[in-house]
Design a protein around this nucleic acid. Structure first.
Lengths: 236, 236
DNA sequence: TTTCCATAAACAATGTATGATTTATCGCGT
DNA sequence: ACGCGATAAATCATACATTGTTTATGGAAA
């Protein structure tokens, strides 16, 4: 699994990157990243001619990229008023965490029943790196954590579910990177990952699924609490 | 609830129809329906100039509509080879049914705890129409069935989940219309809807959620069985 | 003076048309 | 079966028309 040895988490195998054609693809990816990473403000207007100038293309590919992003839900359109950045706010994050709580246990259950020794070794390797890093490098942690779960969901037969998870994951990864982990959360993550590996080894699908549900919910609660706090600080 | 008195099911309130601008919107909707209703064959090439000619527009709006459909997952792109119709095959249908089994119980649980007397009256009214129709008019049944579930999920706070459900529902509605209901399935639908209403009235959220899981799973099994049979017939 | 409103100018979205360039695809002859 | 040239099509650029939105501006009213 080459994608887990370096820092950058890769999409699960078999998920088309949606960035096919050279020019338009990078345009799409650039705008997408700007939204997900928060470099474009919530509700900011996306003016076609501006984007075209900024990226050195004509307006045509820009408009197509915006429609693609619209279909994925990262951009909203109003007739004759063009595109705006869809805000990745608390509601947004809560929504996709809740969907994760529902879907990830099912993906996990399947994984437990299908896991090979190589899979388990890979999980343990990544978990080793996570413990080694011990949250020192936030970016690295978030990549490793994503890789950990990717190993589990990567080969699931339900491609819709796996792709949905990945799409959500990309957002959550970016959002959670903006915050530091509390000590309690750090401990919970390490403990839950270890327990999960134990369940996988023992073939306890139900326990693993239940654990993942708690894991995702805990992660969501943690991020949302941070968002709330930051929001309150900004408002107060 | 005006949307349930006539034949055409409407998207849940608050779901933007994604068809904003007049021209491009209808283009998008037309192509989308052609795919969902199966008028465009699986994997069929979507040639930009053809579509433009057929719909009497220039190529630009066509390309944008295709990108939007790509983002929604109804169309696939390969670099420099353009767009193709994403096949709505057994895998596709199984995937989204399975996601429904995971998500709909959660939506239902919330509904049971929030349902007003008007909601319940509306459910009973629709259920009355469903029984009255008694599967005589397949199209009408599918619209009514959709309306029934829409009442439940319409106002859920998790807009992502509700929109995901709706997007999937539009596909499943079209697919299931291609088949007739077996007698066993008819009986199950009527029984489960009635039981569901009883659970809602009694405020039994868990029972309702469990029932919906079975309802969706049964519906999926039924449709998939039909698809399998038709596929086998075609192959044999 | 400030607030409000109508109006005009500037801006931008949307669609059309056309051409250049690159990349697939297909038919044909070897 | 293979290569090659013709055709088809995707992709991008450019320019422009039309339409609707936004903003600036100059008064009229409070």
């Amino acid at each position: 699994m080459a994608e887990t040895s370096d820092f950058k988490a890769e999409p699960p195998e078999g998920i088309d990157p949606l960035g096919a054609s050279s020019e338009g693809a990078s345009l799409y990816q650039l705008i997408r990243e700007d939204i997900i990473e928060g470099r474009l403000a919530a509700n900011e207007r996306l003016v076609v001619t501006d984007l075209a100038r900024r990226h050195g293309t004509s307006t045509n590919p820009v408009r197509e990229a915006l429609q693609l992003l619209r279909g994925e839900g990262f951009v909203t359109f109003v007739a004759n008023r063009g595109a705006r950045v869809r805000p990745i706010d608390q509601d947004f994050v809560r929504d996709i965490y809740e969907i994760g709580v529902l879907i990830e246990p099912a993906l996990t259950r399947w994984f437990v029943n299908m896991a090979t020794v190589e899979d388990i070794a890979e999980l343990e390797r990544i978990q080793g790196l996570i413990e080694e890093n011990n949250f020192a490098d936030t970016f690295r942690h978030s990549e490793l954590d994503t890789a950990f779960h990717t190993v589990m969901y990567q080969r699931h037969y339900n491609r819709h579910a796996a792709e949905l998870w990945w799409k959500h994951r990309e957002v959550l990864r970016a959002v959670s990177r903006r915050f530091n982990f509390t000590l309690a959360r750090r401990a919970a993550i390490l403990r839950e990952h270890s327990e999960l590996i134990a369940h996988v080894k023992a073939g306890n699908a139900d326990e693993a699924a239940e654990l993942i549900a708690r894991h995702v919910e805990g992660s969501g609660r943690h991020v949302l609490e941070h968002m709330r706090a930051r929001n309150a600080a900004r408002a107060g």
